[in-house]
Design a protein around this nucleic acid. Sequence first.
DNA 1: GACCAGGCACATC
DNA 2: GATGTGCATGGT
Length: 221
Amino acid sequence: MGRQILQDIYDRLYRRFGPQHWWPGQTTFEIIVGAILTQNTNWGNVEKAINNLKRAGLLTPEKLHTLDIAELADLIRLAGYYNIKAARLKSFLNRLFEKFDGNLDRLSNLSTDQLREELLSIKGVGPETADSISLYAFNKPAFTVDAYTARILGRHRLTEPGAGYEDIRMLFESALPQEIQLYNEYHALLVRLGKEYCKTKPLCKGCPLEDLPHDVNPEVY
DNA sequence: GACCAGGCACATC
DNA sequence: GATGTGCATGGT
């Protein structure tokens, strides 16, 4: 199963939606912070929280590393789960300063696999966050899977019902050329499709994949 | 006033 | 190894 259908889906999405210009964020560090703050959270709220940090002049590794965790939690309140996320940002920063001298370039020098392992060993960084940081902050070819991706593939019966994160990631990475720009655009397009047509309550009318075999029974996913 | 959102760690079976 | 639960805000 493979290359052909995944390439076809990509082509359909790109023709419909065009380039998505991800990640929405200017600096490497801003992308990392956004990746942690957006865990199970609406992106609009994340932007407000990031703007709070920007306005306070705190959106650098040094400043956030020094900042009191309670003050950090207060600044990111609008992103939800603020106590947990403050702790997660801190655990990333603690690793960055303890092992990499606070220098993001040193993290960037790791190989794709090494970086993935390093990120996954940080408490609060799971597979999706690790891959989105690898791909969008450090330009490594790590295909990023998210809830929309799993839902879309599941509804079109392109994955087994019990497929996990790694299964889906390997599906894409083995079927597609390992190109950073392709991975970047594909994930962003799947999110775009998910937001517009493939929420838990599906709106299949007008979906660019509407004529592919699919099952919108919520029991399936 | 439900239901949802670009997850993750931890407990329990 | 699979499944359930807490974490929290603002938008629809």
